[in-house]
Simulated scan of single mutants.
Amino acid sequence: MTELPNPYLPEPATIIEVLDETPNIKTFRVVLDDEQKMRDFSFDPGQVGQMTAYGAGEATFVINSPSTRMDYLQFSVMRTGEVTEALHGLRAGDKVGLRAPLGNSFPLAALKGKDVVIVGGGIGMAPLRTLLLTMLDNRADYGSITVLYGARSPEDLSYRYEFDEWTGGGADLTLTVDAEASGWEHRVGLIPHVLKDLAPSASNAVAVTCGPPIMIKFTVQALEELGFTDEAIITTLERRMKCGVGLCGRCNIGPKYVCVDGPVFTWAELKELPAEL
Rank of each mutant, 00 (worst) to 15 (best):
D33M: 09
I123W: 02
A53C: 11
G121A: 05
P66V: 08
R79A: 14
E17Y: 08
S105W: 11
E85R: 14
E58P: 02
T60D: 06
R79I: 13
L102V: 11
S67P: 07
D94H: 09
N104C: 08
E21Y: 05
K95Y: 09
V30G: 00
G93K: 10
T52H: 14
V31K: 11
L102Y: 02
E11K: 05
V62N: 04
E58K: 08
V62T: 11
L111Q: 02
T22S: 07
R29N: 10
V119A: 10
P12F: 06
M125H: 00
T14Y: 04
L90S: 07
Q36S: 12
G124Q: 04
G103I: 09
K112R: 15
T14P: 00
Y54Q: 11
A109S: 15
P127K: 10
A86R: 03
D34H: 04
V18I: 08
K26M: 07
N104V: 06
E58S: 12
L98P: 00
F75L: 12
N104A: 10
E21M: 06
L90K: 12
T60Q: 05
S67C: 15
A56V: 08
V83T: 11
F41T: 02
L111H: 04
T84C: 07
Q47K: 06
A53N: 01
G113M: 12
L73H: 03
G89E: 04
G122Y: 00
D20Q: 13
V119W: 03
T52F: 14
S105T: 11
P127M: 11
G81S: 10
A92Q: 10
F75R: 02
E17S: 13
T52V: 15
I15S: 00
A53F: 04
